[in-house]
Design a protein around this nucleic acid. Sequence first.
DNA 1: CTGTTAGCGCTTTCAC
DNA 2: GTGAAAGCGCTAACAG
Lengths: 341, 341
Amino acid sequence: MKQKVTLKIIAKEFDVSISTVSKALKNSNEISEEVREKIKAYADYYNYKPNSLALQLRAQKTSVIGVIIPEIVHHFFSTVIDGIEEHANKRGYNVMVCLSNESFEKEVSNISVLTNGSVDGVIVSIARETQKKEDYNHFEMLLKDGFPLVLFDRIVDSLKCDKVIIDDIGGGFKAANHLLEIGSKRIALLTTEDYITVGALRKVGYRKAMQSAGLEVDEDYVFKINDTKNLYRQIEKIFHLEKVPDAILAVNEIYAAIAMKIAIEKGYKIPEDIAVLGFTSGLISKFTSPPLTAITQHGYLMGQQAAELLINRIEHTGPKEFQKEVISTGIKIRKSTYIGE
Amino acid sequence: MKQKVTLKIIAKEFDVSISTVSKALKNSNEISEEVREKIKAYADYYNYKPNSLALQLRAQKTSVIGVIIPEIVHHFFSTVIDGIEEHANKRGYNVMVCLSNESFEKEVSNISVLTNGSVDGVIVSIARETQKKEDYNHFEMLLKDGFPLVLFDRIVDSLKCDKVIIDDIGGGFKAANHLLEIGSKRIALLTTEDYITVGALRKVGYRKAMQSAGLEVDEDYVFKINDTKNLYRQIEKIFHLEKVPDAILAVNEIYAAIAMKIAIEKGYKIPEDIAVLGFTSGLISKFTSPPLTAITQHGYLMGQQAAELLINRIEHTGPKEFQKEVISTGIKIRKSTYIGE
DNA sequence: CTGTTAGCGCTTTCAC
DNA sequence: GTGAAAGCGCTAACAG
């Protein structure tokens, strides 16, 4: 790669000092019209651009924010990144994305790499492994130094920092409630294992809705799916219940789609025999048949909020106390729970 | 944010010179055991980490690669990023992601920001608007300076740089061929407008397959869908043909899913009356009913290859001539084209 | 064994 | 009007 033009090179070219060039390019009227013009012309011609590393080092500010997510091939997370990008760009920041791949070690190393001066702050959604280990030391170190950190979606309450979460309890409630409203009595819950907070919280919401309807939660109707094993086999167990449920609430759209597919294969009519509802994060719900009613998650908004909190923290332009933003969910009613039209 | 520890600070603490500290931390045996240990202990305790900006500025190397994609909320592109990340990390690089949002202007500004010293090279998939304008000046400038650039997926042939593309012609051929093999005679093609190369290339493959089968392509069976308008209405036109096709080949999974849905609504049996096949980039094909046969696209591999080409270019560790890697497609046969079992 | 110096590219204050 | 010098944080050649 060819040597890039620097102030030094231009200075040598015209036999002036570096600072003269710097000022000329900034249109400082300390510099004579004549010199200014010829320097600008030269710089322009050779496509001079100030080296941003030098600027950053000097300014002690990179205008870059780091983002660490567990995986990117996941509609929800891409949506969040999109939101982060949008807000960050608007405020003059760039985004550096790192993946933890759900690994504790990679998360720690990402944090370490990012916080050595390359970024002004980080936004992270915690890796599963970290959540399981409950080792948040790497974050605590950062916070001790007052390094700007925003947690989203997969958060941990004990960390003193800004957070933005989806209202999963509300979402679970909204979901179960919708099913109750359409007349479901026996709602099966397809959820994740307990240490995955998202699943656990949605379950809380489900439980709340059941209780407000005066129904008690039958634990036989709660299925904790292990993501690493055969999903079909695990989900099929729903249909081994003595009394097959008349509704299925799944905490994500894959589980929902699979459950629906199995139900149809077994000859059940959706939604007449069994209504199905999922939490969506992608495009699947729209294209199943029947299309799935789903709780929607506004990842984009979440990303924007996270970026806003972070940048406010970086620029000291928000409240001093740590914020916890809650993004409420929506519900998109489709044919899997809706008879009529 | 608290002042980070620097060599200077440590040096002052022990009343030694900065270089002594630097060496001590590098375990240089130029420094006495005693001094070394106390400095290391201190650094460790205060969690010293060398400022990477300073290192980068000094080394004239950032070990960061920039990636510019049209959008991230798109399974294919996330997959590619995933692949880029994987390879980049393996070789000690980090990834900075920017979105062009299909806008020419944003692409230009992204290039400009990234290439001012923040990254050692960039990987880009060109924005639609840029393709439409055919203005590739921002890339030509880079190449003139010998700046490492790799184009993927949406490329332009005239640019002299490394490229990696999907074998779209082969994919179109493979797709049409499969349909012909299962006995389809009248294959409708659902494609994009011509300036979208991907669609155009797949069409070429389709045409080739038809011709090798001794069939001629009836342009009435080619539907160019405009992504901004009502997809349903446009796709429905397939069924207005005097002779309804016995197979539909769609250049992406959304079109395929919609076409299939409309067909079913109209009472056609899939695949008996009409076989449907799409190019997949997400999870939709798997969850439609029947599940869609699809040409698969290996974005992950593509990302890895792109990163490899770029890093080889950066490190001068590959061939001097520009490479053009072609990633071949796969085909996943599902029920939408398969009778039996 | 330890320190001085120069330099990466840039900005800015202060002299001249 | 122009330039010298300091400094951002670090490394490395060289001097002592």
